[in-house]
Amino acid sequence: MAGLAASGSNPDVELLYDINGLAKDAPRWFDRVMEYVGEYGLLIGLVLLVVWCWWSVRRRGEDDAASSVAGLVWAPLAAALAVLVNVPIRGFVERPRPFNDHQGLQVLVAGKSDYSFVSDHATIAMALGVGLFVANRKFGLIGIGLALLEGFCRVYMGVHYPTDVIGGFALGTAVALLLSPPATALLTPVMSAIERSSRGGWLIRARGRSGAGEQDALIPGARKESAEAGAEERDLAA
């Protein structure tokens, strides 16, 4: 399957040169920024986005907080599982990195000696983005946007073909989306048990949120009792 990266004119290689050519024309400082963003920054940003969504869910104290948190827990688990699935895929396809078969590329990250198809970075990013989208649409759209940017950066850096990135997107989406129902079905009871525990309940719901709701529910009754007591006092005074 190494012939997948065979040299010669094809849309995949042409798009590789077009996108990577932007790195040649860009100033050195911009390439350094893209190198960091594409290698580490966007993945860190996606993880922080998941944490932000978790914080938002637990602060709201919704009735289905356990199932929402279960969906968020699935996002990083899906990314890890997708990377494991990619291990045999890479070994079967055995596609060399583009800079090994094509001259004149601006390679921003040196030392990449493993196979190219499919991109681990694109797989992880899209699995996180799609997993987050299943749990929360608003945060998920942002996550998918960051994943798309991650794929662009991998080609820009000269370490992946566009089809490596597309393959990673497909793999990450398939794992996160198709396995989401059974995964959340298994994780939700676990999150519910944690919510009921005295030590881990804060991981699912912020302390005081349910208590505040109960107090709000009791306020009308308290007002009614106060009004009745005031009426009785007026009757006695009369």
Rank of each mutant, 00 (worst) to 15 (best):
A212I: 01
R97N: 03
G208M: 03
T184S: 09
G3A: 11
E35G: 07
Y115D: 05
L42D: 11
W54V: 09
A135H: 11
M34E: 13
G167I: 01
N136P: 12
E62Y: 09
R196I: 01
G41R: 14
L49Y: 10
R32T: 14
L22K: 13
V51E: 13
V13Q: 13
L177A: 13
A174H: 00
Y17T: 07
V13N: 11
Y161V: 00
I219Y: 03
A238M: 08
D120C: 04
V57T: 15
L186P: 11
G61E: 12
A122K: 00
G71R: 13
V57F: 13
A222L: 07
M1H: 12
A217I: 00
V73A: 12
E62G: 14
V159T: 11
M126S: 04
L46M: 13
P182E: 10
D235C: 04
D164V: 01
S9E: 14
G45F: 06
A237Y: 06
A147H: 04
P88W: 09
I204S: 03
V190F: 15
A127Q: 03
A206P: 01
K112V: 08
D216W: 06
L236E: 09
L203C: 04
S192F: 01
A26W: 13
G200Q: 05
G111M: 09
V85M: 03
A75K: 08
A82G: 01
W52D: 14
V85A: 08
E233T: 05
G45Q: 11
V37D: 14
S180Y: 11
L148G: 11
V93I: 10
L42Q: 09
T123L: 00
Y40A: 12
R90I: 02
A170Y: 02
L141K: 11
Y36S: 05
G208A: 02
E94W: 03
E14R: 10
I142E: 10
A6N: 07
V109Q: 00
V51A: 15
I44H: 08
D216S: 02
P76F: 04
A6Q: 15
G45L: 13
V73L: 13
R28Y: 05
I44S: 08
G61S: 12
